[in-house]
Design a protein around this nucleic acid. Structure first.
Lengths: 246, 246
DNA sequence: ACTTGCCTACTTCCATACAAGTCAACAGAA
DNA sequence: TTCTGTTGACTTGTATGGAAGTAGGCAAGT
């Protein structure tokens, strides 16, 4: 067969490999399988997946545009550290957009949508205990459903690149994120939407999306090497480039 | 010299050409120099700029990710039509984000910023009569200044790809957009921020960013071939692929 | 000890060749 | 006339070799 499997990810050589590599590498970065500041050499990854360097290179270009890798010409390609300030800005954008989505939903009628969301809530409670990773998927689905319901599905698509900045933080330390509390907040949002309480829904959504602000400083304290410290201290301390892979 | 000049855009072969090509082509598409549904064959553009296919190809990939071109494997690469629904969604996102920026600015103190914005306003009035294209630049600068002032400069960066969807509409028909009115709205926003009138600033910003909704239907009526009609009518009328370049 | 210059082994970037799919035109048969 | 199969000139996707630049090791000179 023309299937190559590396680290649990499969690549189908019969279809275009460049977009597949892009998705695989993005996922590996967001899930912290490829760690910040680790090298991603073109020939090495090409050999790993049994393809040429060109598709790898094209995947790198896309990841660079998303701010996930940094390619320094004639020097090497590295997984970006998490930009603390970028996370804050991404969160700001998400709060603004989803607050308006919540307002829109609460000011209209959405009986079928409410039923769907309720079902998702019970599902979230069921699986969250066992697998925080599975909860991440359901969380993603929940927020996407809200966007769809508000008739702005494409807007959610716009946020995908932004959201990846926040997701990286979550994947570093699941335990820092109070999943049960997050689900309660989800339920609160749905309640307000059902009651057509516009500003209530908005406030609940904003509170929900500010939750990461509680965890973020602790995560940075635990894993300072994973972060680009450009948040408060304007003095940029350029730390050494240190290899990650042996 | 190693400079190649095509259609008023210059390309410096000594520096990396791929990002330059990306910027040039993006600008040409947004400014409607390259029209919707026109072909962009890799070898043709490569020959035009005196480079190989590879950098052209890499530029295409980036443009595809931004939704500006559509590359159909083994068939060809085409400039995307303007997706009516995508424009509406982009506008929705912008309104949400910039409304929060306006709120943030109005709730804090920004004396120096106000002076800067006032200066920009007079500049806008000066040049707008002569050159609508110049006004576009100043408009961009105005909104970016607001984002910077609110301490969320990176958020504005996130919106760039989104904004391009709206800019394409503007560049098709400058005359449809009441520039004087837009400047008045700018001034209104600055006034409210200066008075620290939070909800006033928010409302003014939202009204400003809804302005495009007045022009959009007329633009689509004037140039229906430039649009992907996926807004109201769910029936997708696939029009013929028609060549643009002779 | 310290600096300077070269040399080698890397890296990304670009050019070129080949592989594979698509589409239109066209020849031939019913 | 109409349908069908084939050919060939396109397209983009991938592979590979070389060009240009960088970083570090090492030897020679101060």
């Amino acid at each position: 067969m023309d299937l190559v499997e590396v680290e649990g990810w499969t690549l189908d050589q019969r279809r275009a490999v460049s977009p597949q590599l892009r998705a695989i590498l993005r996922s590996r970065i967001i899930r912290n399988d490829l760690r910040p500041m680790s090298r991603l050499s073109e020939p090495e990854i090409a050999k790993e997946y049994g393809v040429s360097r060109q598709p790898v290179r094209e995947a790198f270009i896309t990841l660079m545009n998303e701010g996930l890798v940094e390619v320094r010409p004639q020097r090497g390609t590295y997984v970006c550290k998490i930009d603390y300030n970028a996370v804050l800005n991404a969160r700001f954008v998400r709060e603004a957009v989803e607050a308006d989505i919540a307002r829109k939903l609460a000011s209209e009628g959405h009986d079928h949508l409410i039923r769907d969301l309720r079902a998702q809530l019970t599902l979230q409670r069921d699986v969250s205990k066992d697998s925080p990773e599975r909860f991440m998927e359901l969380d993603e689905r929940f927020h996407m459903t809200l966007a769809q319901g508000a008739g702005v599905a494409k807007s959610w698509g716009f946020l995908e690149g932004i959201k990846s900045q926040m997701d990286r933080v979550r994947f570093i330390t699941f335990e820092e994120f109070p999943i049960a509390k997050l689900i309660d907040q989800h339920e609160r949002i749905v309640d307000f939407i059902e009651q057509k309480a516009v500003s209530g829904a908005e406030d609940a959504m904003r509170a929900h999306l500010r939750e990461i602000l509680n965890s973020l400083p602790r995560v940075q304290d635990l894993y300072p090497d994973y972060f680009e410290n450009s948040h408060g201290l304007s003095g940029e301390k350029k730390s050494q480039h240190q290899e990650e892979r042996p």
